[in-house]
Amino acid sequence: MNFLMNLVWFVLGGFISFFSWIVIGILWCLTIVGTPVGMQCFKFAVMAAVPFGREIRISDSGTSLIINIVWMLLGGLALAAEEVILGVAFCLTIVGIPFGLQHFKHAKLALMPFGAEIYRIS
């Protein structure tokens, strides 16, 4: 079932989130200092491509607070706004609610990606 949901997700708009994470990751990787941030973006691009069957756990530790603040100012707010807009658009229909909820999950990730961990659920 996850495979089918992921396929429909990608065709109906998941590719937008995937592409956005890839573009932001490439922009971060243009600098040597930003390469670790770009690599994190590529990891989350996979999550944006196939979100069903995966969850996000955000750490409560404050070790990544500074990089999350820099991230928010240099790309995170734009990604989060995109995800919220897509989530609202999908939630306008009953059939689209599961896809909208995935976009809201990605919006939270777009605001605080550092210290977040992706794990599979069965």
Rank of each mutant, 00 (worst) to 15 (best):
N2A: 04
F3R: 08
F3N: 12
F3K: 06
N6S: 08
N6T: 01
L7P: 01
V8W: 05
V8I: 11
V8F: 09
V11G: 13
L12C: 08
G13W: 14
G13Q: 13
G14I: 01
F15D: 03
I16V: 13
I16R: 12
I16N: 03
S17K: 08
F18H: 11
F19G: 06
S20Q: 15
I22N: 01
I22K: 01
V23L: 15
V23C: 11
I24R: 14
I24S: 09
G25H: 06
G25V: 08
I26C: 12
I26M: 15
W28R: 15
C29H: 14
I32L: 07
V33A: 10
V33M: 12
G34V: 11
G34M: 08
G34A: 09
T35P: 04
T35C: 15
T35S: 12
P36Q: 00
P36T: 04
V37N: 06
V37Y: 11
V37H: 00
M39N: 12
Q40M: 13
F42I: 05
F42N: 08
A45C: 12
M47G: 12
M47E: 14
A48N: 11
P51S: 01
P51G: 05
F52N: 07
G53I: 03
R54L: 04
E55L: 00
E55H: 02
E55C: 04
R57M: 03
I58L: 06
I58R: 13
S59M: 07
D60H: 06
D60Y: 08
T63I: 11
S64K: 14
S64Q: 14
L65P: 00
I67K: 10
N68S: 04
V70C: 10
V70P: 10
W71A: 09
L74W: 05
L74H: 09
G75Y: 04
G76H: 00
A78F: 00
L79R: 03
A80H: 05
A81G: 13
A81H: 06
A81R: 08
E82W: 09
E82G: 09
E82A: 14
E83M: 13
E83A: 13
E83W: 07
V84Q: 01
V84I: 09
G87I: 01
G87L: 07
G87H: 03
V88M: 02
A89M: 06
F90D: 04
C91W: 02
C91Y: 01
T93K: 05
T93N: 00
V95I: 08
G96P: 09
I97H: 07
I97Q: 02
I97A: 05
P98F: 02
F99N: 00
F99R: 07
F99P: 03
F104L: 04
F104W: 02
K105I: 04
H106K: 11
A107H: 04
L109Y: 06
L111G: 05
F114Q: 06
F114P: 04
G115Q: 01
G115S: 03
I118W: 02
Y119F: 15
R120N: 15
R120T: 11
R120P: 12
S122F: 14
